[in-house]
Simulated scan of single mutants.
Amino acid sequence: MKKHFTSLFPTHAVAALRTRFLLLGCLLGFSLVVSAQTTRFVSTTGTNGNPATATSWATATADLQGAINSLSAGGEVRVTGGTYKPTTSTTLSGDIGTGDPGNNSYHVISNSDISSTAILDGFVITGGHANYDDTIDFRNNGAGMLNTSSNPILTNCSFTSNSADSGGGVYNTIRSSPSLTHCLFSFPAKLSTLV
Rank of each mutant, 00 (worst) to 15 (best):
A164T: 07
A130S: 14
T45P: 05
L191K: 10
T39F: 05
S116I: 05
A143P: 07
A52Q: 13
I174G: 06
H107E: 02
A73Y: 12
C157G: 08
C183R: 06
L71G: 07
F5Q: 11
F9A: 14
L180S: 03
S70L: 10
D100M: 10
T80C: 01
T39S: 08
G97D: 00
A143V: 00
V79H: 03
S110L: 13
N147T: 03
V34K: 13
Y171W: 14
V34D: 05
L28S: 13
N141T: 02
L27V: 15
A130T: 03
T47F: 07
S177W: 15
N131Q: 09
G122Y: 06
L32Y: 08
T181K: 11
S56K: 01
V124A: 09
L92H: 06
G169C: 04
L8G: 11
R175I: 14
S163E: 04
T80R: 14
S110D: 11
F187M: 05
D100E: 07
S179C: 03
T6L: 10
Y132C: 10
T88N: 14
D63W: 02
N104G: 02
A164I: 01
P188F: 00
L27H: 10
D134V: 09
H12A: 15
T181F: 11
S7I: 06
P101E: 04
T90I: 12
L22G: 04
M1R: 09
